[in-house]
Design a protein around this nucleic acid. Structure first.
Lengths: 214, 214
DNA sequence: GACACCTCTAAGCGCTTGCTCACTCTCCGT
DNA sequence: ACGGAGAGTGAGCAAGCGCTTAGAGGTGTC
């Protein structure tokens, strides 16, 4: 972890690398507004005022309100995909890689639950072309998780009758964290990540690796 | 199944028992519009035209657009709670009751995924008083699932280190079905229900009952 | 000093929104 | 025959929406 430092290692606020300061404030304001009230219930005036500027200033940096959502959605989806691909491509047993994938994916959804909520639940408001682009990224995230599970099945260490259905279930579990998680709750992102990684290992019937069975 | 027939046994379209025919058409139109585009992106003109009437006719049957959402959300939440309470209160081992709960809860979310999507994802648009009412029902659904899991732990047939967190995870899995399920997909509500019931039994580490382990 | 450049604002345009109102139908009891 | 009630409509209001425009201020270059 040295050359990767620029791209939000984990704890930092996202959007830190957006170049004009005002644009970054606008994206951040939009994320919070979209997460709180939804894209359609958020007005451009609300976004601008949260960013501390006049309504018109928004259009200096972004062509439309939808482009703001697209920026958030695209970057967020790519970040989520990167997390899963890194886990898929890492060394280790399938159980270790699945644990890593779920733990870091869940942790991201909990830690950045504001962003994640917009990423996961507001993509329906995207323009058709942008929507298609984002859907392609989502298919790739599904593929990343599925390939880890398939590896475990081929290696004989997972017991999964329905790989496709189980992949969807695993992703459901992780994604839904963005819906219910809040920082004033009783558990931290790390705790939820660990708990969910354990639950998923059970779901795939993991055995034979470092996973002890009584 | 004889006295229960009136209240949508399962397969039937919901909202069948709303009294003025026009009101039922309005609710049905609103459900489809809200599920497709979201509450805030849906116009009262759209709802009315889907129901085959003029924009003004909506206000003969419902005071506001929000009251329509409230009707849908309230009835849907109560229906979902009933399903889980019936499973909780039924005879049988904890594993059987948990299987029943997940299977029927998931089946409802898949079969009525249009309604379920509105129920699960549009409650943020409710007025504060209505929102609080619906949140209370949601706490009860959480309680129903948790009490089944607690029973299994007490009986020594479930192995669940974190009951509260696992309850949230189980509900996540089920609720998220409403987000991704569509009737043109490759699996039926029954298949998803069976798959998910099996996954949840693994999540709680079920053993000792009818659950065979190799 | 003059100019171009960028950022930002005050004012507001055209349009859509949720909702209302005056009115017309159709049905029904007497 | 007729009056009242309820369901429904066409037209439209006030408010708020996304977005545009004309221009103000600041900054760097020659």
């Amino acid at each position: 972890m040295d050359a990767e430092a620029k791209n939000t290692g984990g704890k930092a606020e996202p959007w830190g690398d957006i170049t004009p300061d005002a644009a970054r404030r606008l994206v951040s304001a939009a994320v919070h507004a979209f997460a709180e009230r939804g894209y359609h219930a958020t007005t451009t005036r609300d976004i601008a005022s949260r960013a501390g500027m006049s309504p018109a200033a928004l259009y200096i940096h972004y062509k439309t309100k939808e482009e703001l959502l697209y920026q958030i959605s695209k970057v967020g989806h790519e970040r989520a995909l990167t997390i899963l691909e890194r886990a898929r491509d890492s060394a280790g047993t399938p159980a270790e890689r699945l644990t890593d994938a779920v733990r870091s994916f869940v942790r991201w959804h909990a830690e950045h639950h504001t962003t994640a909520r917009v990423v996961q639940y507001e993509l329906g408001a995207l323009a058709e072309e942008h929507h298609a682009e984002v859907i392609a990224v989502r298919k790739a995230t599904d593929g990343a998780v599925r390939s880890i599970i398939e590896d475990g099945v081929k290696a004989g260490v997972f017991d999964v009758p329905d790989v496709r259905g189980t992949t969807v279930a695993v992703l459901s579990l992780c994604i839904d964290v963005a819906r219910w998680f809040n920082t004033r709750g009783r558990s931290t992102p790390d705790e939820v990540g660990d708990l969910y990684a354990g639950l998923v290992l059970r779901m795939v019937g993991a055995h034979g690796g470092q996973d002890g069975r009584p």
